[in-house]
Amino acid sequence: MNVNIVKNENIADGIFRLTVSVPEQARGAQAGQFINLYLPDADLLLPRPFGITDAYDDVIEIVYAVIGAGTERLSRLKAGEVIRALGPNGTGFDLAAAERKVLLIGGGLGIPPLLFAARKLRENAGPEGGAKITALLGFRDRPYYSSEFRAYCDRVFVISEKRNASLPENASLDSTGVERTGTVVDLMNALVAEGELAVTGTSILACGPIPMLRAVGEWASERGIRAQFSLEARMGCGYGACVGCSIELRDLESAGAGTVKQKVCTNGPVFDAERIVWDGL
């Protein structure tokens, strides 16, 4: 399908938010799904997959970092231009299975797509719904997308790997008012120690780099918390035809240590943390 670029804004250093108009697809989009974008350039043939950050009215939004030729080209596209897209693709978060208390844990570019989950969880819970949504967001440098989370989350905690990078936005945002340096796992441990994070009856939705997810997975499993993770893989098609993105998952139905192959692009990108076989990712 062809999509119309509505906006392509530079929201932070090297980070852009792209809004495309896709009336039919926007309505059906689910949190955790992604969309393939194709660049108008014969040397950039493969799909570029991006997590859906929000979908409302007739539009889908994504947030992307310029990391290579494709995203550089994307960043130069202007409102009014038309590009090819495919999606929404994949199986998103199972929000119905999430507990009344949800921890959204994001690292780096895994953060923006969690916003869509936050909004959907808030909507599903209804105005008086007792859903408690807490976001833990880990940035490498200066936080850039955390204020958006406030609209839907009860509490938002931010951490940056770089000292002082997180001010001033962080100071006003972090529900404890503390400026923190480290990774999202440091943040989780600190909050538990401070008594800010009660984990019983909580479930986790997370997106971010593999080492972060792996650590969060261990953290969750030690505490018996269900976690759903959104993964990435190099994709040849993004819709289940090339078997380029297939990973090994534990087969929980079979007794013993059986595994099955599943495609990140169709069976995922969201998988139950306890099923993920980390070695090889």
Binding site: A233, S246, G280
Partner: peptide, 18 residues
Amino acid sequence: GNPLPRIAETYGGMLNSV
């Protein structure tokens, strides 16, 4: 099949090692 990554882009094409 082979380990990931199995897909890479090239000028005017792609490499796969599925």
